[in-house]
């Protein structure tokens, strides 16, 4: 008696659909770039933050939690970005990156070690043939206040010294004053200077302030060739937050559906606990899904997070809370 088409939604119908035949549109002028970005839907801050608050109530337990902890460990860019960094400090960080818990070889290694350009060579030699990547911040990190020439030199040196990944900062001043073409060209130039190294573009969302800006800057970076969009340098007052991460995840999702290119997301700054990390993984899980649940597409830029993940892991094994001194302070 039913005359209507009935369809039961199936798993194939609803994920993030990626058509690899499509491609990233070329931006031929600043005007075109601006109109492309202006056409993006706005972000309602109340709704966005409400969605994050709701997802923050997800309860991750038992085997899911163990799996999520290991996944999070494998996504860590173990970072040291201090003026006081030394070669010794970088070497011990690398040791920790390759074997986060020397007593338990089932703990995965982290994704990368993230250092300043002048310490890339040290990290490269310490990591040897391990699959842990060397990431280097560049382009006059963290302020980005230098000429393009200096920035490109900064990148080239890091790549020459063996960096697999470059974390660049965008020119927030140019972005905020509407010189979007300049920001675009700078990213494109850095991408070229990377010569195959993966490019993570730091938006410094704490300085962009509005979610609309975060969305537009994410698209700008992706259109210009970013392999990852990254929230923050960790050097300003506001670091990664779940709402900004959600806006960026929505961006990479929609970009993938439009262009067939999967861009990663890196959240950085202020992520210290397993609970924080799990919240981000829930966002990834429910916004972009399986293709991003991998170190290839999602990263945590952090230093103290790793020890908390290890502590939580050991706590699950021992059934009791463990003391912080169980793990090295690196």
């Amino acid at each position: 008696m039913s005359t209507a088409p009935l369809r039961l939604v199936t798993g194939d119908d609803y994920g993030v659909k990626i058509d690899h035949a499509s491609s990233v549109p070329l931006m031929n002028s600043e005007a075109q770039l601006k109109s492309t970005l202006a056409a993006l839907a706005g972000v309602d801050a109340v709704g966005l933050e409400g969605r994050c608050a709701k997802l923050a109530t997800r309860s991750i337990k038992k085997t899911t939690k163990l799996a999520a902890i290991d996944l999070a460990i494998s996504m860590v860019d173990l970072t040291t970005l201090e003026g006081a960094d030394t070669r010794g400090r970088v070497r011990s960080l690398c040791a920790k990156a390759m074997r986060p818990d020397p007593r338990d070889l089932t703990v995965p290694s982290v994704a990368a070690v993230c250092v300043y350009p002048d310490l890339v060579a040290e990290a490269r030699s310490a990591l040897g043939t391990s699959k842990v990547s060397v990431a280097s911040v560049a382009t006059a990190f963290p302020s980005g206040r230098a000429s393009l020439k200096v920035k490109l030199l900064d990148v080239a040196e890091a790549v020459d010294a063996g960096a697999d990944e470059i974390d660049m900062v965008i020119d927030r001043g140019a972005f905020l004053s509407g010189r979007l073409g300049e920001v675009f060209e700078e990213i494109a130039a850095v991408k070229e200077a990377c010569r195959g190294a993966h490019l993570k573009v730091i938006l410094e969302t704490g300085e962009l302030v509005t979610y609309d800006n975060v969305r537009r800057a994410s698209w700008l970076a992706m259109l210009a060739g970013a392999d990852f969009v990254k929230t923050s340098t960790g050097k300003v007052g506001v670091n990664a937050t779940t709402p900004t991460a959600l806006v960026m995840l929505e961006g990479v999702r929609d970009f993938a559906e439009l262009t067939g290119k999967l861009v990663g997301v890196k959240v950085a700054g202020g992520i210290r606990t397993t609970k924080d990390a799990l919240r981000y993984l829930v966002l990834v899980n429910e916004t972009v899904g399986s293709s991003w649940l991998s170190p290839d597409r999602f990263r945590f830029g952090a230093s103290s997070l790793l020890n908390d993940l290890l502590m939580q892991r050991l706590k699950r094994q021992r059934g009791a809370y463990v003391r912080a001194d169980e793990f090295s302070g690196d």
């Binding site: 994920g15 993030v16 990626i18 991750i60 337990k61 799996a67 429910e286 899904g289 399986s290 991003w292």
Partner: peptide
């Protein structure tokens, strides 16, 4: 990209949550 099929589908919610 050559190895991937023409259209892939990133499954949402593929990280299963244990009962809570």
């Amino acid at each position: 990209e050559m190895d991937e099929p023409e259209l892939t589908n990133s499954r949402l919610g593929s990280l299963e949550y244990d009962p809570a």
